[in-house]
């Protein structure tokens, strides 16, 4: 019972783990290349959410310090700043992967690996 209460009150972590799992399952089980790339993005969103959640304090404000407001809780800005970099990395990986998929589509006319294998085996 206590465990459930702990899990439920920290639901952002639960959500981030679920997203991470969905992402990995999508990459590993879906064969469509576009779905794989989407899976990568879902997985990374899970990681990003985890970081952001670890910097948040319930009832806290954005860390813009104003004079004369003592005793106000501020959220930790470092995870958000880190994740800004993480998002940039994720965008560039996605762009590169999409570029490769476009190239494969030009070669084979499809983005389904099964069809690509078939085209290869029959010698186009």
């Amino acid at each position: 019972m206590n465990l459930w209460r702990a899990v439920l009150s920290n639901y952002p972590y639960l959500v981030s783990l679920v997203l991470f799992g969905i992402g990995i399952a999508t990459v590993l089980t879906r064969s469509n290349l576009m779905k794989k790339i989407i899976g990568i993005n879902i997985m990374e969103s899970g990681v990003f959410l985890f970081f952001i959640a670890s910097g948040n304090i319930r009832g806290s404000r954005a860390p813009i310090i104003e004079l004369g407001t003592d005793g106000v809780l501020y959220a930790n800005p470092i995870p958000s700043a880190l994740i800004l970099t993480g998002i940039v990395v994720s965008v560039s990986v996605t762009a590169f992967a999409l570029g490769l998929v476009v190239k494969l589509y030009k070669f084979y006319g499809t983005i389904e690996p099964e069809e690509i294998i078939e085209i290869k085996s029959t010698g186009r």
Binding site: L33, I37, I40, K103
Partner: peptide, 27 residues
Amino acid sequence: TEAALKYLLLATIGSGFVLFGIGMLYM
């Protein structure tokens, strides 16, 4: 091209795991 895409996808899964680990250590 096929090999590069395969490499990129798996390498990204790997770095996703590493980043998650870093997040836990930071927490």
